[in-house]
Nucleic acid binder design. Structure first.
Lengths: 250, 250
DNA sequence: CTGAGTAGTTCTCAACCTGAGAGGAACCCC
DNA sequence: GGGGTTCCTCTCAGGTTGAGAACTACTCAG
């Protein structure tokens, strides 16, 4: 059996070393637009390029923990704030040559965060920023990070359909209109306010009422809105499907 | 920036080595039951335990290629047969201590295969077998492979909802009833034949008619069935949702 | 060869869900 | 105080789903 042959005959220490890293696609919504957390690289390769926050997994550290640590380091977030962030494994990228220095296998994570204070605040160094996604196409990222971001975005769009994770972009209490704005921002098209409202309230466990309303109406008028918090569902049934996008990815 | 500090100050060669492996959750349907490909380990750790087929990623080998190679080695499949198998990345498992020998990060893959000849046929050694999933609970697997299998099964069930991958469990041509049997097997409950039929034919690109029918009726009677082949859709719109499973994973 | 049973396919009908539009009411700003 | 904006609810038509039944073509046992 090949596995056994390898385990027996093969001493990994004798082979070219492999490094394992984590990279985080961290998304948030600021001023109605999706933003991506990027850090500026100081050293080659790709010096001065922007890249996803990430780094080596430590010798005794779980992958999830490494991703959480990287996110905390770059955002300056800790404790409770960090606990409000959704973090999930996205995919693993390990094509030979993706890092010119050595074989690097990178486990990518996807994070949804509420609107946070400016990044890099807590950390020791370096430039970090929340980049509006609209500005991304004009910026080349290090390594294969553009592909990772694209995969992350697609995953994010899909996740909003069948999970209540849209609430992770918002504070503890939010209005249905704010929740709708999250969907519109991530999916990139407007939704019918009335139908969205009906649907959100009809899915069991998506949101629960706090009984309270906003203090004031909206800045441009309109009544006060009722406030909700996230419910206890982890999956939405029935799902909130996004309007058909013409071609079904044939 | 922490990543940079590491890259500069940190020589991975000086650290305890990390090994990267792939493991494959390969599923097929034989005699109306889901089966999982397992190999028997010859060497410690977990000698004599059954495990997922897998092994080290070679120094210059892409992750997907490594998974395909492991699958081919254990099934004795090659060329065209292998091309009919669906292979996708599942998730990555890297908790420290999951392999007692050293730090091992394993990239798991999920495969859907049509009913294949007995495994291990083409390979050089070792025991390999297709185990009916019903027999799995009574068997302890090596490492954290039970968890990986559980994750793979959940992914498989979800994938059948919104992709046409159920066809990958079947031959080039199949009847709607055979397709329905795949869904019933993977989801674990019976489906309404008439409604399933209507739905499959109404989703664009799921299946296309060959114009032919089976040579004979079924073994216990019934008319000949029309034959179809997989269509060109890669996503099902609208999806084929599985009946609500009581608790919505609250 | 015949009749009972099985299964593929189509149809019907009620229940539900969705998209689109409209309207009432609360609120902002001027 | 009035115009414009937004939250929330309602209505209605169209589509989809779940359940059941009908029709027909076939196999198998007798």
């Amino acid at each position: 059996m090949t596995e056994e042959r390898y385990l027996a005959a093969y001493d990994p220490r004798a082979y070219p070393p492999v490094a394992v890293t984590v990279d985080v696609v961290a998304l948030t919504i600021r001023e109605g637009a999706l933003h991506l957390l990027l850090v500026r690289r100081a050293e080659p390769p790709y010096a001065d390029f922007w890249a996803l926050p990430g780094g080596f997994v430590r010798p005794v550290e779980d992958l999830d923990a490494a991703a959480g640590r990287e996110l905390a380091e770059e955002t300056g977030l800790g404790g409770d704030d960090l606990r409000r962030v959704h973090l999930e494994q996205l995919a693993t990228y390990g094509t030979p040559g993706r890092d010119p220095r050595m074989r690097v296998v990178s486990v990518a994570y996807l994070a949804f965060a509420p609107d946070l204070p400016e990044p890099s605040a807590g950390t020791d160094a370096g430039e970090a920023e929340w980049l509006p996604l609209a500005a991304l196409p004009s910026r080349r990222l290090a390594f294969d990070h553009e592909r990772i971001v694209a995969d992350g975005l697609e995953r994010a769009r899909a996740k909003l359909e069948y999970t209540p994770l849209a609430t992770r972009f918002l504070g503890q209490e939010f209005t249905i209109a704010e929740l709708r704005a999250v969907y519109e921002t991530v999916w990139g098209h407007p939704l019918h306010a009335g139908n969205f409202h009906r649907k959100v309230l009809s899915v069991p466990g998506f949101v629960e009422s706090t009984g309270a309303t906003t203090e004031h109406g909206g800045p441009r008028g309109g009544p006060r809105a009722r406030l909700y918090r996230a419910g206890d569902a982890r999956l939405l049934h029935p799902a909130l499907l996004r309007p058909a996008t013409e071609e079904t990815a044939r």
